[in-house]
Design a binder for these strands. Sequence first.
DNA 1: TTAATTCCTACTTATTTGGTAGGCATTATA
DNA 2: TATAATGCCTACCAAATAAGTAGGAATTAA
Lengths: 143, 143
Amino acid sequence: MLSKKTKYAINALVFIAKNKDDQPISVSRISEEQNIPMKFLESILTELKNARILKSKKGKYGGYSLNGTPEEISMAKVMRLLDGAIGLLPCVTHEFYERCEECIDEETCGIRQITMEIRNETVKRLKAATLADIIKREKKLKK
Amino acid sequence: MLSKKTKYAINALVFIAKNKDDQPISVSRISEEQNIPMKFLESILTELKNARILKSKKGKYGGYSLNGTPEEISMAKVMRLLDGAIGLLPCVTHEFYERCEECIDEETCGIRQITMEIRNETVKRLKAATLADIIKREKKLKK
DNA sequence: TTAATTCCTACTTATTTGGTAGGCATTATA
DNA sequence: TATAATGCCTACCAAATAAGTAGGAATTAA
């Protein structure tokens, strides 16, 4: 299950991506319009900024804007940043690999093979799920 | 990510399914051979018994055995029992449905559509992942 | 009778999640 | 140059969940 943090992050990113001014958007505005607790959102956007997914402008009329195009930012990237591994087991992930403690032989583990297949399929879809893709889907759904 | 509880449960079930005697298998034996803390395992097997996935025999030479065939018990069933919903969002699951609190319009939510597709694919695979299937895969991998 | 087992109740401990509080630093504009 | 609106930073906190542990009663085969 996605954490609220990640869900909030994706919602905020989609909201920012929809904005067509050059003006950055403030935390308080995103917080109000997307129903996200303000201080919590603040800390999330800071993380996104540190990961160079967002960029910020300080001071009055400051705020956040995308650091890149909506095509470049995917759910996979955000989830990995905030929630860590995507796979169902620590042993089926590239970026966060760890051995399963109780595992007797990883190479011949049937459960591993299955979760690996699920991971591959899931990651493929989450990588395709860019902000641009999400917005496109929403437009289609609204018709 | 699967909880350790669920991972232990699946490992224990596979171990029990491989056993070809009529004799049930004791918690202590599974605990030793599968590297699972004994008392924790005990509580897990009790849950599986209450859910009628396992059946038990009390007293000396007692223990647990499958309540059904290895074809009938899938990872999906065990995961839902012990970890709850399989989907990435509370709003994309049949058996554990809940609205996302901050969500503005579920029907036109692009994130929901994506996670729904992932859920469908994942559940399909986890349902196919029966104990029989896992054992078959392991045999193949050992060659 | 005894050893090996499940069953039952209660407790514990560590980690993660989902926040909150308060103030400093920066910046546009009147 | 004052001020209001913002991001930035540090610290803290409460609730929930995960991962166990402890101890003993009841049952059963030999």
